[in-house]
């Protein structure tokens, strides 16, 4: 069954207003600076409706940086579970994608996807702000395609 107008309106809202929360799972801080850079007036993410939120309860996209250390593992899981559905995860930086140079370290469990499901990967050491913005925009267009394909909830 095709979606009714209300569901389509909500779908549209989801595509146009992704609010992000930034979490450092054990990055060297290089990628974090780039994420913060992407939020500055120079790149102006509010053009795409992206706002940074302080609490996981308000956010839709979890932007994660760094390899997951054993210390942050449970916290990452907790933050992910605190976010209301529907939610997405973007892994920023080579470390977040695969574990990078920290892979195999005694205190590291690997990339972000070793703990929670990841929807978009942004490689680079450190990932450039342009790459991060590109990833978010691609995530949104992939979301649009998925929304078109999925059937109505009723």
């Amino acid at each position: 069954m095709a979606k009714n107008i209300l569901e389509r309106a909500v779908d549209w809202g989801r595509r146009k207003s992704p609010w992000i929360i930034h979490f450092n799972a054990g990055a060297c801080n290089g990628c974090d600076i780039e994420v913060v850079d992407a939020l500055t007036p120079r790149y102006d993410l509010e053009r795409f409706g992206i706002l940074q939120q302080g609490t996981p309860r308000h956010s839709d996209v979890l932007v994660c940086t760094g390899a997951v250390t054993l210390q942050t593992r449970d916290r990452l899981k907790q933050i992910y579970e605190q976010m209301p559905e529907p939610k997405f995860v973007v892994a920023v930086g080579t470390c977040a994608c695969t574990g990078g140079i920290f892979d195999g370290c005694y205190c590291v469990s690997g990339g972000i996807d070793s703990v929670i499901p990841v929807d978009a990967y942004v490689p680079g050491c450190a990932a450039r702000p342009e790459a991060i913005i590109d990833a978010v925009v691609k995530l949104l267009s992939a979301l649009e395609a998925a929304q078109k394909a999925e059937p109505s909830e009723q």
Partner: peptide, 23 residues
């Protein structure tokens, strides 16, 4: 000195929040 949000931004925010899980 930014471009700022698009004209429908508050509406999109509102609709999106309406469609989210309430915890």
């Amino acid at each position: 000195n930014r471009r700022g949000p698009r004209w429908y931004q508050p509406l999109a925010d509102f609709l999106k929040l309406l469609g989210k899980e309430t915890i």
